[in-house]
Nucleic acid binder design. Sequence first.
RNA 1: GGGCGCGUAGCUCAGCGGGAGAGCGCUCGCCUCACACGCGAGAGGUCGCAGGUUCAAAACCUGCCGCGCCCACCA
Length: 849
Amino acid sequence: MQMPEKPSLDGLEAKWDAWWQASGTYRFDRSKTREQVYAIDTPPPTVSGSLHVGHMLSYTHPDLVARFHRMRGLEVFYPIGWDDNGLPTERRVQNYFGVRCDPSLPYDPAYDYAALERPGDGDQIPLSRLNFIELCGRLTAEDEKAFEATFRFLALSVDWDHTYTTIGERSRRASQRAFLRLLANGHAYSAEAPTMWDVDFRTAVAQAEIEDRDQEGQYHRIAFDREDGGIVEIETSRPELIPACVALVVHPTDERYTALVGSTVLTPLFRVSVPVMAHELAAPEKGTGVAMICTFGDVTDVTWWRELGLPARVVMQKDGSIGKKIFGEPGWESRDPEAANAALAEIAGMYAKKARKKIAEMLSASGHLLGEPQTIRHPVKFYENGTRPLEVISSRQWFVRTLQHRPDLLKRGSELTWHPPYMRARFDSWVEGLNADWCVSRQRFFGVPFPVWYRLDANGDPDHDAPLVPDESRLPIDPLSDVPDGFTAEQRDQPGGFAGDPDIMDTWGTSSLTPQIAGGWEDDADLFSRVFPMDLRPQSHEIIRTWLFYTVLKSELEHGSLPWTDVGISGWVLDPDRKKMSKSKGNVVTPLGLLEQHGADAVRYWASSARLGSDTAFDEQQMKVGRKLAIKILNASRFTLGMEAAPGEVTEPLDLSMLAALGEVVTEATDAFAAYDHARALDLTERFFWAFTDDYLELVKQRAYGAHGEAGAASAVAALRTALDVLLRLFAPFLPYVTEEVWSWWREGSIHRATWPRPDDLGPGTAHGDGTVYAFGAEILTAIRKEKALKKVSLRAAVELVTINDTPDRLALMEHLERDLIEAGNITRIERVPGSRSSVVTVLAPVES
RNA sequence: GGGCGCGUAGCUCAGCGGGAGAGCGCUCGCCUCACACGCGAGAGGUCGCAGGUUCAAAACCUGCCGCGCCCACCA
C-alpha cells in the first residue's frame, strides 16, 4: 500500500487528469451495442469569450450522470464540441482585432494575421470574407484550448479524443446534408417575405432569438383627413412610418367606426389615399380603436398586410434608416406628390428615432398632431444580442417549416422524460406560441453556407425557384468558392451563369444537429447506430426554445424520432442579490480561479448539491464545505487503511449494524441517482459519512487497535475497509479526484471504472442485520459527549458512571456496545436501569490534578 | 394578459399527512495517539397570509400577498 504520511489535495487535479488521459479511462469503447451504451448530447459551449460560473454548475451535472452510469457498467458516450460558428464569434473577432468583413474584397491566401494581433486596436481594417473566416477560426481555436483546460480541471469525464467544432468540416457537412434533405422533401423553402431584421448586424433573425424589452416610447395622436370631410384619429408610437402607411384598420364590431369601413382617408403630410378596413386583430380598447397599418411597423402589420391583400410601400432600409422614395410614381401615388416628396426628404437618411422626432414636429406644424405625445413604457422587440429595436424588413430568406408540425412536436415533447417534469411547460408554451416558420438564413459570414447556387438568366437575375444543389458526396461546399456541376468558375455571377447563395445558416441550424454530428451520422453509420437516439440532453432552461426545440424538430423531420429520451435541465447560478450571475460578475469570479482556490472537487461539491431545475446561489462557503469533506475523506481513509490489525470476518454486531445502515444508503442513493436526483444521492452519502467518522470510528477505534483481542480488531478493520470501499465509490461521481487518490493507495485501476456499489457488497451480515445497534451506540455516545461539553472538560475526561434508563429492549442492545462505549467514552462503569424512559445520566470522575 | 416554479432557523436548502430538520454562520468548550484545513456541545423557527378538508396539515384544496422565470401581435 502506497499511502502518503500527510495526505493533501494539492496537485491531485494535474496528476489524475494526466493519468486518466494516458490510461484512456474515459475512452469510448465503440464495440458496445446501443443497449450497452449511455449517450449524452453535451452542450457545445459558445466559444466567444470565457467560461463563467454557470458552466461549472451545468457541466458538472451531466458528468455526475456519466460517471454513475459508467460505474454501473454502461459504456458512456460523452463527446463534447465547441460552438464557434455564429454572430457572437464575429462580434468578438471584430472587437478583438479591430477588423470588419468586406465581402467585396478578394481572398488573400498569404494574409499576415500576426500583424493584426493587437487587441484593443479600434481601426476597422477590412478583410475579405474568407480571410475574416480564417481569423475567426484562429481566435476560436485559442479559446477552445482554454475551455478544454478548464473543463478538464473540473474533471469532466468526456472522451477528449472525441471533440468537434460547429464550424468544423463534419459539422458543415452534417448541416448542409440535413438542409438539402429538408429542401428535397419540402420542409425547407425560400421566400421573399417580411421578417424580423436587426439593423446593426444587418441580418434576419428568427423568432427564437427575439426578446421583448420594456422601452420608453410616445403615443402620438394623429389626424387622418377623411376625403368626405372630417378626420379620423389614430394613435401610434411610430409616426415616422406614416409614409409607409397603406391602410387604417378597425375591429369589425366596433360600432364607432362601422360607417368608416370602406371609405378612404388621406395620410397626413404625404397625402396618400388609404382605405379604412376591418379586421379581427384590431383592438377597440387600444388607442382610439383605429390602427395605422404600415409596411412594416410590427408583425401585426404583416398579418394585416397579407390577409387584407394590401400593397407594400416600404421606406425602412436594411440599415435602419428611412430611404428616399419618389411620390407620384407607380405605387407611390399621392394627392400632393410635391409636398409628399418634400416631407420625405426631411427625414430621409435618418434613423427611426430621429425621424420620429422630426416628423412629430412636422405633424405639429401641419396641425395633424393632436395634443402632446404621451410618454409610455411598452415592450419592444430586440434581437437578443442587439442594441436597437428590430425592424420588419422584406427580404429573401430560407425557412424551415415549423408551424405545420406543431402537433407532432408537442407530442414529442410529451414523450420526452423531463427532469424536472415541470420544465416541459416551457417547451409546450413555446411550440404553442410559434407564429412563424423558422427563418434559418443569416446575412453574415462565419457560419455554415447554404449549399445551393442559382441559375442566372440573360439579365443576370437569379432563379430562386429552382436552386442548383450539389450531390451529398461533395459536402461540405462553399457556394461562393465551389462551382455547381455543369458550370465553370468563369460563369460565376455572369448572365446565363450561376451565383452562389451568399447567406449562412442560423447557428442553431448546426447546433440542432449535435447528436448527429457527435454521433457520426452518415459519416460513421456504425457508430451512429450505437449511440442514437441518445439517452440524455443536459442543458439550461433559457435555451429550451432554441437548442432543445430545434434539435427535436430536426430529429423529427430527418429521423422521425426523438433525439434522446431524457432531458436534464440545470438552473442558473444566482449572485447574492438573487439575480442571474452576470457576465461581468462571472469575469470577476473566473471558473479557473475558483477551481484553483478551492479545488475541483470542492467546486463540484457545490454544483452537485444543486438539484436539476432550481437556480442556485453562488456560494463559496459551500465550496469550502466541499473541500473540508474531501480532506476528511483523505484523513479518514488514511486512518482506516493505516490499521495494523489484519482484517478478518465481520462478527461484531456493531460492525454488522453499521454495514447494514450503509446498505440502506446504497439502495437509496442508487435509486436517487437513477432518477437524476444527484443532490439527494450526495446528501445521503455525505450524511452517512460524517456520522461514520464522528460516531462509528470513535466507537471502534480502540477495538481496532486491539483493545479487545484479535477477533474484535479483525472485525472492526474489515468493516472499516468495507465501508470505506463502498463510500469511496458512492462519492466517486461527485469527488473524482480525492476518491481516485485514495483508491490508488490500495486498489487496482481507476475507481471511475469500478463497479457502482450494491447492498451485497456489504457482506452477508447485512442481509439479517439492521442499523439499530449502530444508531443506539451513537445516541449514547452523544449523550456522554454532551455531559463533557457542558462541564467544559476534554472528551478524553474520565467518566465514573453512566446510567442508562431505557426499555428492556433497548437496554439489551447494550450487550453489543458496552465494551466499545467504555473505551470510546473513557468510562469506568455502565449501569442499566430498565424502565420506560429514555435517558442517560453521566457522572464524571473527579479531575485529577 | 397566460403559464411554471418558489416563499421552512441570520444565510443556503432538505422535508411534502402524524416527532420542525441539515450545513454554514453565531455562542461556549476541547491540543482526544486519522484530521486544529480538526473535534464536541448549545442557542436560534407563529414552516408567507387567510380560509377549508382531516382525529391529525409545513406538507392536501381554495383564495390572496411577495419573489423569480417562461410565453404573449411594439397601434
